[in-house]
Each structure stands twice: as structure tokens, then as C-alpha cells.
Nucleic acid binder design. Structure first.
Length: 759
DNA sequence: GTGTGATATCTTTTT
DNA sequence: GATATCACAC
């Protein structure tokens, strides 16, 4: 115990040992936040607190996994295993499987991912005869999602004047109606979406005092990681659970709040003390991760944000290298320069591949980097992007599993009823859908007795449907008789999926087959595994290795677990969001261009730009030894070449921390004179400056503000040329303009994409 | 009912 | 560039 505490500084030690009562830890980047959390749990366990009474909530599966490993190292696996540790979503899903029957959900409810949800919305839009152009599933989904994150039910949604007014203004008055239908459909299908896991958990605790009481007593000690990223629903669950014992410890850093787009409310951490008058606050300000240069550079950047809790992050580490800025003509060159730089450092300093990370704003940027690394034979691993579980062939197989586990799951039904093709086409599916809505039955129930519910169906179709439905039903009955692996194999064979995959001899088909095989193998491993990831109460069933148990967590998995080939010595490629909480000796942050980072979606309000800036702060502070920044003057974006200015963030870092800065005093900069602003970007390159890795840069050139584009004005579009604005529709980010171009005629353009310049 | 090719639309970020 | 949707031939 003492040896544990000796490894901590004063602030850390206080945060670790103060295990009773409400505690807030404001942890600057690299200040040992995870260490505090894990040691705190270790101390509690050594003090004799029952691991079953500890709840530790994280934001990602990776964070939970890592913390569990570290605790295991400190106190051994028998105790560590029994701590309730996981993401908000997975922990509450677990509880809802046990208690959900109170809300009318089966314990094997399906978890709809975003695609499923959007598909449900799509079919409702169709059913209500709404214009799919006006009601895009994505927008509707976001509206519903943020309503749920704020605990606004469909009914409240329709009765809240402000919300109704908003939707009316956006010319989408039917969203409330869609929301209502969406809820009905999901419930009928025995399905919850991601937001439901938080929403229904709240309902459960709110409506069933005995359940609240049960879990308050179960979770006597609660810890929350990344508290700055919690949304209202999460906040309220924590508050309710902690209300009895008030042994709650939240850890976070307001400067690293990067999820407000998903409903995260930074006020949760700023106002935390209001909920707990006895709150003890500890600030961790000493950075152990990065060089002075990196810490100071990051500080100089984040100082530009207005909304923040005051703290002074500092370090005793060495000064380190200045931050390097690479300039490239194109994304291809950017990739090459990054790869070359990695290669050089790797060779000169004998660094393993795993010392390097390349971070970017959007997943699409990974491609150019990948290609460059491949050319130099540098092994890499991409996190995120099209994850294993999102691949079409995996989703097909999983849809079969889902339907077998939960025959009410209409989305799964629709996905696979005709894959492999069995002559059940669009028309038939529409008839089934219609019948399902009218009879309030599931698609499966209709398919079991098609003739009974749909009149005039060709006898061939009836037979095909019955055959399919009977097969699924037969498999469903074997759920508890076979283990997950046996059943999964049986499903893949009798569905004809394996046959289908094996007959496809193309390279693509082969990889699909291999991926499917890999999923089956994962199930096999699961069947043979002894331990369970999250403890199960003694009053629930034991450790049955059946397929429904396997399926419980699968929807919440985002990345395929650790590397299959066991080789972890690879350069890591990921988005900055995914990199939160991680650290690497050498960090490359690429694509530092206006409209990319900061994203063009986030340029309208100060709050949005501040969040982008926090994101950049997170990126910088991932690095231990050295940061390299890069930008490309041109880059392909959705198919065509675009030119972008270097990111404003480049000039926001105090230049003394940048390598051999060629920057001049701002007013003398050629790029900032009014004349230069009118010139196309490629002409602004100062003469005599070779296009190498020097950090010459210009302040960003902003596109014509949207509100200057009015009917009647003449504009220039980079591809369509000169034109005249005829009319403007919509508002906010979705403003559309109808423009008549001399060369190509009339076009409708979304102003956020079409970069129009007023002539 | 199925399969093909053309074409519109699109992308932040994640559980 | 990639995917979803649509029109059309079989």
C-alpha cells in the first residue's frame, strides 16, 4: 500500500486516498489521471471494500479494458474482475437486461446501431408519405438522439413549444410524429438504440424506487472517467445512483471536452460542486508525459478559449524538440513526408514502430498516410474507420444471429430475408411491412403465416416465406440447447450464407469469407473462455455460453479487439477523438487546414471553434517527445481537388515553440494583405520559398459568409463558373441556394459545401 | 423478382 | 471515391 502511495505526488495522493464522500479531480493532460483512478480503486480494494460495490464508468471500451488491466496488475485478477467497470452503455445495457422487463422489454433485447436506427426512420418517413429530401434520416436521427440525450420523450417532444417551433422553422414539423412512431417500432421489435440505454435506465431509476434503492446499495462507490464528456442523461443516472452514499468521484478535464456534438454538456463538470456542497476538489497540474515545449505550446493554444476552469499545467520534463511543421503540395506528398519522417526517426533513434502515431480529424484522411507507409514497408494499424463489426458480411451474419436470438428484430429480418437471394423481393417486403404495421405484429410473425395476413400473395412466395421463417424459428428453439459456437455454425450453414460466400471466388469474396470465419472463431473463443468480462449477479443465471449471451455486448463493440497477429509493433493511425486518453512518444497531426481542421462544419459559432481547438489541444498533448504538424495545400475531397489555407491553429501556437519559424510579424505577412486575400491560394506562395518542410504560413482566408449570398447577386463557383443566385431556401447549416450558371444551367447548392464567392 | 449500370449525394468526430 | 438509389433490361 505505502509503495503505491509513494509513487504519487501530493495532489494525486489526496485524490487517491480520499475515498469517501464526493470528489472531483480536475486532471490536466498527462497529469496521471488514469493512474489516480486505478490506484484509487486499488486502495479501496485493499481497504476491504467489496469489488462488487464499486462501479467505474468510462467512455470507451478501450479505456475500460486498460483500466481493468492496470488494476489487475496492482491487486490481482480475482478482485479486479469483480469490479463493475465498463462504458456507460455497456453497464446500463447489462442492468437493463436484468430489469428491462419492468419496462416491457425482453431480456434479449436487440441493440440497434446507428444504421439500424436510420433504417427504421427511413421506413417511417416512407410510411408517413413524407418527402425524404426534406426529412433525411440522418437529420431526423440527430434530432431524436439529442432529444433522448436530454431525456425528452416523444410525448414531451411534441408538447414542448420551443422544440415544435424549432422544427417548424426548419420546415420539418413532422419530426415529432416520426419520433413517436420510431419509439413504437423499436419497442415492438424488442430493440433499444444507443440513446435508449441511457434514457430507459433513467426511466427505470425514476419510476421504480425499489430498483433505484437496489442499485444505490449495490454501487456504494462510483467513479466516472472523462466526466467532461457526459451528457444530461448520463449526468442524471450518476446523480441518482450516487444520491444515497455520495461516494462519488468524477475525473475530467474541461480542456479536453470534445464530444458536445454528441450532447456532452461541459456544464456538468463546471457545475458539479452545486450538487455536492461537501465536494472536495483536487487539481492535477503537473504533466508527466510531455516535454516542456509540448506542454507550453498546448497551453499557449488553449489559452485562446474563453470557457474554462483555471489551471496551470506545467512539467519538470526536459525542454525537448521544437514542434516541426511540414508543408506539402498534396495529401500524397503529405503522406510521403510523414512516412519519411517516421522512417528517419525510427532509424536514427532506434525507435520501434509503436512509438509513432498519426492523428487526423476525419477517418477519410487515413488512406494517403497508409499508402505512404506501405511504400516504405512500415507496419501500421488503423483504429476506427470501417470497423470489423460494420463490414457488410459481418453485419449479415450478425443479423442472422440477431434474428435467431430475438425474432422480433425487424431490422435484422429485413436485412437477411432475401440474402442469400431466395426470391423474396421488394414488393413482398413492402407487403410484409404494411401487414406488420396494420396487425402490430413483427415481420417474422407475418412471415410464419403469410397467407393469413396478406391476401393475394403468390403461392410460391408464401412457400418461400414460410420456409425462411420456419428455419429461423427452428434455430431459435435451439438457442439454449447448443452453445454459441455450435449454433453459429449451424446458422451459417442452414442459412446458405457459407455457401454463398464460398462460391464467390473473387478477391473481395475471399476476404468476406475470411472475415466471416473470423467472427465464427471469435464465437468459438467466447464459448471456451472461462471468465466473464463483467460480473454477473449471483441471482441471475450463471455463465451460460449461449449465442444470446455472446450477442449482448456485440452491438457495443466498436473495434475488433487486440491485433490478431499478435504484433503490436506498428505505427498507429487514428482520429484524434479515438486518441483521447492515449500517449505516444512521437505524434504526427496531419491535415492542419482550414475547413478540415477546424472542420468546415464547426466554423459558425465560437463554441464550435473552441471545441475544435480543444480537439487540437488533445492531439498535441498525446505526445511525449515530439510533435510534427503537417498540412497540404491541395487535397481531394469527395472526388474533386480542393485548395485550402493552412489551419488557423498553426498560427495560434506561440511561435517560439515551432521549429525554425520563418514567420514574420503578422502585418508584414504577404498573405494577409487585402490584395493577397483576393488571390487564389496557389498564387500566395511567397517567391523564393522552396516547397519544402519550412513552416512559412499565412493566416486563413475565409470563404464568403453565407449571409452575403442573397437572391440577385452574381457569384463564382469553382467548377460551374459564373452564375446568378435565383433564390435561397432553408436556414442555418442547411441553407440551399438555387443558382443559374451560364455554363451548366440551374443548380441547387448547399451553401455549406459549395464555396461561392460573391463577385 | 433479379441484376446491372448510371447518377446523385455525401462525411466530421463515437457509444 | 464510395455508397445508396434509381431506371431499365431480362
Amino acid at each position: 500500500m505505502t509503495e503505491i502511495l509513494e509513487q504519487l505526488n501530493d495532489a494525486q495522493r489526496h485524490a487517491v486516498t480520499c475515498t469517501d464522500g464526493p470528489v472531483m479531480v480536475i486532471a490536466g493532460a498527462g497529469s496521471g489521471k488514469t493512474r489516480v483512478l486505478t490506484y484509487r480503486i486499488a486502495v479501496m480494494l485493499r481497504n476491504g471494500i467489496d469489488p462488487f460495490n464499486i462501479l467505474a464508468l468510462t467512455f470507451t471500451n478501450k479505456a475500460a479494458r486498460e483500466m481493468k488491466e492496470r488494476i489487475t496488475q496492482l491487486v490481482g485478477s480475482s478482485d479486479a474482475r469483480n469490479v463493475w467497470m465498463g462504458t456507460f452503455h455497456s453497464i446500463f445495457a447489462r442492468i437493463l437486461r436484468v430489469e428491462g422487463h419492468l419496462l416491457g422489454y425482453p431480456s434479449n433485447f436487440t441493440i440497434y446501431d446507428t444504421d439500424d436506427s436510420k433504417n427504421v426512420i427511413k421506413s417511417i418517413i416512407k410510411e408517413l408519405n413524407l418527402d425524404p429530401k426534406q426529412y433525411t434520416p440522418g437529420i431526423v436521427y440527430n434530432r431524436i438522439s439529442s432529444a433522448k440525450s436530454n431525456l425528452t420523450s416523444a410525448e414531451e417532444y411534441n408538447h414542448t413549444a420551443e422544440i415544435v417551433a424549432d422544427d417548424n422553422r426548419a420546415q420539418k414539423p413532422m419530426i415529432g410524429e416520426i419520433y413517436t412512431n420510431y419509439e413504437i417500432r423499436c419497442f415492438k421489435a424488442g430493440a433499444m438504440d444507443f440513446d435508449d440505454l441511457l434514457f430507459k435506465m433513467n426511466v427505470l431509476l425514476h419510476n421504480f424506487p425499489e430498483i433505484l434503492y437496489k442499485y444505490q446499495n449495490k454501487f456504494k462507490y462510483i467513479l466516472v472517467d472523462e466526466y467532461q464528456d457526459t451528457n444530461h442523461a448520463q449526468y442524471l443516472i450518476i446523480k441518482q445512483l450516487a444520491a444515497r452514499h455520495e461516494n462519488i468521484c468524477v475525473v475530467g478535464d474541461d480542456a479536453q471536452s470534445i464530444y458536445s456534438f454528441r450532447g456532452a454538456n461541459i456544464q456538468n463538470i463546471l457545475n458539479f460542486k452545486n450538487d455536492y456542497p461537501d465536494l472536495k476538489t483536487f487539481k492535477l497540474e503537473q504533466n508527466y508525459r510531455s516535454t516542456q515545449t509540448i506542454v507550453n505550446a498546448a497551453n499557449s493554444l488553449i489559452a485562446r478559449n474563453k470557457d474554462q476552469i483555471f489551471k496551470q499545467v506545467w512539467t519538470e520534463n526536459e525542454p525537448g524538440h521544437p514542434i516541426q511543421v511540414l508543408k506539402a503540395a498534396s495529401e500524397i506528398e503529405e503522406g510521403q513526408k510523414v512516412a519519411n519522417s517516421i522512417f528517419e526517426i525510427k532509424m536514427n533513434q532506434q525507435q520501434p514502430n509503436s512509438s509513432f502515431a498519426v492523428l487526423y480529424r476525419t477517418n477519410a484522411q487515413s488512406r494517403a498516410i497508409e499508402e505512404a507507409l506501405r511504400k516504405l514497408n512500415i507496419p501500421y494499424r488503423i483504429y476506427g474507420g470501417v470497423s470489423f463489426y460494420k463490414r457488410a458480411e459481418i453485419k449479415d451474419l450478425l443479423a442472422y444471429f440477431r434474428l435467431v436470438v430475438n425474432p422480433l428484430d425487424d431490422e435484422a429480418f429485413k436485412r437477411i430475408v432475401n440474402y442469400p437471394a431466395r426470391g423474396i423481393g421488394k414488393t413482398t417486403l413492402e407487403k410484409i411491412e404494411l401487414a406488420a404495421v396494420q396487425t402490430k405484429l413483427s415481420n417474422m410473425q407475418i412471415a410464419l403465416e403469410p397467407a393469413r395476413y396478406i391476401s393475394g400473395l403468390p403461392s410460391g412466395t408464401v412457400a418461400k416465406l414460410e420456409q425462411f421463417a420456419t428455419m429461423i424459428q427452428g434455430l431459435h428453439y435451439q438457442l439454449q440447447k447448443l452453445d454459441a459456437y455450435e449454433l453459429a455454425q449451424k446458422i451459417s450453414v442452414s442459412s446458405g450464407l457459407m455457401m454463398e460466400l464460398m462460391s464467390d471466388k473473387s478477391e473481395e469474396g475471399l476476404s468476406k469469407f475470411q472475415n466471416s470465419e473470423e467472427l465464427i472463431n471469435a464465437i468459438k473463443e467466447f464459448t471456451e473462455r472461462e471468465e466473464i468480462d463483467i460480473p454477473i449477479d449471483s441471482d441471475t443465471e450463471g455463465s451460460k455460453r449461449s449465442l444470446d449471451v455472446f450477442m449482448q455486448d456485440i452491438a457495443l463493440m466498436t473495434d475488433a479487439d487486440d491485433d490478431k497477429d499478435g504484433n503490436n509493433n506498428k505505427v498507429v493511425l487514428m482520429t484524434i477523438h479515438a486518441a483521447k486518453g492515449l500517449e505516444f512518444p512521437f505524434v504526427y497531426i496531419v491535415g492542419l487546414e482550414e475547413n478540415l481542421f477546424p472542420s468546415n462544419m464547426s466554423l459558425t459559432t465560437r463554441a464550435e471553434i473552441e471545441e475544435e481547438r480543444r480537439l487540437f489541444y488533445v492531439a498535441l498533448t498525446r505526445a511525449e517527445k515530439k510533435v510534427v504538424l503537417s498540412y497540404a495545400e491541395t487535397r481531394y475531397r469527395w472526388g474533386n481537388l480542393t485548395a485550402n489555407e493552412p489551419s488557423r491553429f498553426l498560427v495560434e501556437i506561440d511561435e517560439q515553440y515551432l521549429e525554425k519559424s520563418l514567420r514574420r510579424v503578422p502585418s508584414e505577412k504577404p498573405g494577409s494583405s487585402p490584395v493577397m486575400k483576393q488571390m487564389p491560394a496557389y498564387m500566395k506562395k511567397p517567391l523564393n520559398t522552396p516547397a519544402t518542410s519550412e513552416s512559412s504560413m499565412f493566416p486563413p482566408n475565409y470563404v464568403t459568409p453565407v449571409d452575403e449570398i442573397q437572391p440577385g447577386v452574381s457569384v463564382i463557383h469553382e467548377r460551374f463558373g459564373k452564375g446568378k443566385v435565383l433564390s435561397i431556401e432553408g436556414s442555418g447549416p442547411n441553407t440551399k441556394a438555387t443558382v443559374f450558371f451560364a455554363q451548366v444551367g440551374q443548380k441547387q447548392l448547399l451553401l455549406k459545401f459549395a464555396k461561392l464567392k460573391v463577385v
